[in-house]
Amino acid sequence: MNFKRILGIFLIIFIAIDVFLFVVYNRSSVTNSDTSSSSNILEEMRKDQISFSKPANDTHEGFYFSADNSSTLRQQATGLQQQSYRFDGTELVSEFKRSITVPTGKTKKTLDKVVNNPVLVAFGDSYSYSKKLSTKTEIVYVQRVASGPVYSKYGQIRFTLNSERRVVGYSQNYLSNVKLLKEKTKTISEKKALTWLYQYNELSNGAKIDWDNLAYTRLLTARGQYVFIPTWVFAVRMSGSSTTILKRVNAYTGEIIKTGSSNQSSNSNSEIFTIN
C-alpha cells in the first residue's frame, strides 16, 4: 500500500467524520431553538391579542386541607338575631327583619359591620370581603382558611343587593373541621400558571384577563370531607362576550382544573361560576 492510498483513505474517513459532526451539530441547534421559555409564550399570547397585566414570577406557599360543611354552622346559628333563617341542606339562608342600605362606594364598610357582628352573622370574623367576586347584584364574602381565601361556594357568604341597593338577606356556607393534610408547599408562580392556561388552549384569541388571584378551590371529596388546594384563579372574558369565566389552575402541578361534566365520577367539580 503506497503513501498516496493511505492519504486517500484518511481523506475519506475525515470527510465522513465532518459530515457526521455537522449533522449532529445542526440537529441539536434545531431542537434548541424550539425550546420555549415562559417569556416567549407570553409574547406569543400578545400576538394572539390576549390582554393581561404582567404576571409576577414569585412562588407562594399554600396547604392541602380538608374541611366539611357539618352541623357547626347550624349550632352557631341558634344565637342569631334580627333575622329569620332556614337551612337549605348545609347552606344557611337568612332574611333580615329590617333591610340594610348599602351606599355606593361604602359596600365594604357597611357590610363589614354586619359580618363582624356575631349576632347578625355566625362565624363572620372568618370571612372577608371579596371585591373581585362581587357584582352589581351580589356581594361576596369569602372564608379565609389556612392563610388564603376560599373561592368556593362551600365557604362563602353572599348578600343579594336589590335595585335600591338594599340588602334583604344572605346565604352562607361555613367550612368547619379544617385539617391541614400536608405541610406547607411551594406553589408555581402566576406567570407559570398563566402560560399553562394558554398552553392548554383555555385562552382563545382576543381573550381578556380581568384579574387573577391565588385562592383555594375544592379539588375532590373523599371520606365525606372536601379537599382543597391552592389554585391560580383567572377571570377570563372571551372576545365579544360580556361574561367573565373563572378558570382555575392547580397551583402545585399547573394542571387545569376541569369543571362540570368534563370531569368524571362523583368528584366532578361544580365550582365554575360566571360573573355578569
Partner: peptide, 29 residues
Amino acid sequence: LSGMMWTNPAHSNGNSGTKVTKTSDNTSN
C-alpha cells in the same frame, strides 16, 4: 466542529441537555 460542540454549553450533553431545559418549565417544583 468538535470544538464548537464542546464549547457550546447547549450541546455539551447532546440530546439530554436540551431536554432538561425544556422540562425545567414543567410540573415539579
